[in-house]
Simulated assay, not measured.
Amino acid sequence: MITITVKWDVKPEYADDYMELTREFTEATRAEPGCLWFDWSRSVDNPNEYVLVEAFRDGAAGGEHVNSEHFKKAMATHGEYAASRPKIISYEIPQDDWSELGELQMPEA
């Protein structure tokens, strides 16, 4: 799968409405057949920072995503909300879902 994490530094005047401003893009991406997840979080330390964690079935699904009309539209318009160019980490890894955190000690059931 392809897994991507993007940090968005959002202009303060858009920060509180950012999830609504990106709703159309988010919903369209989540509806893609190759999308495994597309999840936004807001930083607890910086209210103007959003983190997007996304994953796609494979490179082909990732390619379909970046060639979609909703992706092209978002990349052409969402820069208006950004205080700086978003930062990204992208990897292709040999799995198809989240792995469990084995190091965490869990109480006996």
Rank of each mutant, 00 (worst) to 15 (best):
E108I: 06
P33Y: 00
G102I: 06
P86S: 03
L36P: 00
N46A: 15
M1F: 14
L52W: 07
D96T: 14
Y81L: 08
Y14S: 09
L101D: 08
Y91A: 05
E13S: 02
S90W: 07
Y14N: 06
G59S: 04
G59P: 00
A82Y: 13
D39V: 11
D39E: 05
E69T: 01
G34R: 10
I89V: 11
L36C: 01
N67S: 12
I2E: 01
T22D: 05
T29M: 00
H78W: 07
K87W: 12
T77H: 09
K11Y: 02
A61G: 02
V51D: 09
V10Q: 03
Q105A: 15
L36K: 02
G63C: 08
E54N: 04
F38M: 03
I89G: 10
Y14D: 09
W40R: 10
K87S: 14
A74V: 14
C35I: 07
E20P: 00
A60E: 07
K7H: 13
A55C: 13
T29Q: 00
L104K: 08
V10A: 05
I2H: 05
G34Q: 01
S68L: 02
V53S: 01
I4A: 04
M19C: 11
P47I: 06
F25I: 02
G59E: 12
I93G: 03
R23K: 14
T29H: 01
L52C: 06
A109H: 14
G59T: 09
I89E: 05
T5V: 15
F71C: 08
K73E: 15
S99V: 14
S84C: 06
P47V: 15
H78M: 15
F71A: 02
S68K: 10
E108G: 03
E64C: 11
L101K: 14
I89A: 14
K73Q: 09
E27C: 03
E49C: 02
Y18T: 01
M19Y: 03
P94R: 00
A83V: 03
I93A: 10
S90D: 01
A109L: 04
I89L: 12
Y50A: 01
W98G: 05
S99T: 08
T5S: 14
E103Q: 11
V53M: 05
S90N: 06
I88D: 04
T5P: 00
G34D: 10
A28Y: 01
K11M: 10
I89D: 05
M1G: 09
A76E: 15
F38S: 04
D39K: 06
R42I: 03
A55T: 04
A55V: 07
V44R: 12
L101A: 13
L52V: 04
S41L: 06
P47Q: 11
G34I: 13
Q105I: 14
F25G: 03
L104I: 12
G63S: 12
P107Q: 10
W40V: 06
A55W: 05
E24M: 11
V10W: 08
W98A: 07
I93C: 06
R30L: 15
S68E: 01
P12E: 13
G102T: 15
P12D: 12
Y50I: 09
E49N: 02
E54G: 10
N67E: 13
S43N: 08
M75H: 07
C35H: 12
